[in-house]
Amino acid sequence: MAQLPLALTLADHASLATFVAGDNEAAVQHVRAVAGGAGETLWLWGAGGCGKSHLLQAACRVATAEGLRAMYVALGSAQPELLAGLESLDLLALDDIDTVAGQANWETPLFGILNEFLARRGGLLLAAAVSPAAAGFELADLRSRAAGAVTYRLKALGDRERALAVRLHAEARGLELDPAAADYLLRRVDRDMRALTAWLDRLDRDSLVEQRRLTIPFIRERLTGGSSE
């Protein structure tokens, strides 16, 4: 008998507790400091799935807990008007900033925001696939201010760290995933953490619906195309 999964799944919200830092310890610590009110601008960059969005959203969560006003914006799916008035926030996290570089209707408000945050030392977290110099800003002033951010390149996790990350994410969802099953999953899905957590979501839902434990045969069935619907 199928069971409605919604009420029973535990939410795995982006938090610093489930973020495995690996080689990115300094970046994570710095993000934590900014989320706690250290007024600085950080530029985090790296390939997709290395944890940028997770870090940014986790930082917003920390800021809220500290009583600060925070907001996360994924620029790739937003409109420039959304930036109006955001100068007053304590922490602003702008994701995918490189996807709007080179567009005048974005660059002018972005420049205003960088200027304001620098002037009053607000917390600004910027994330991109590339470094500030390679983002392709047309506005020289914006380029220069972005280059003045403290930049961190986020590195992908090693195998052992990915295993730890999967365990933490599974725990956050209330999933029981034994080491052998975790290892099986890790070896077979894409290396980036986004793909991994998406699979965890799906396995979580499917195992609830079908009332099955997360065994290797069950995972294999899913990975080889068994539909969950």
Binding site: A33, S144, V150
Partner: peptide, 21 residues
């Protein structure tokens, strides 16, 4: 060598790393 802002960004990175570690 490019400009002072970038120079300061690099400095803050060094100082922050030292503080955290």
């Amino acid at each position: 060598r490019s400009n002072i802002r970038e120079l300061e960004g690099a400095l803050r990175r060094v100082l922050a790393n030292a503080r955290f570690t």
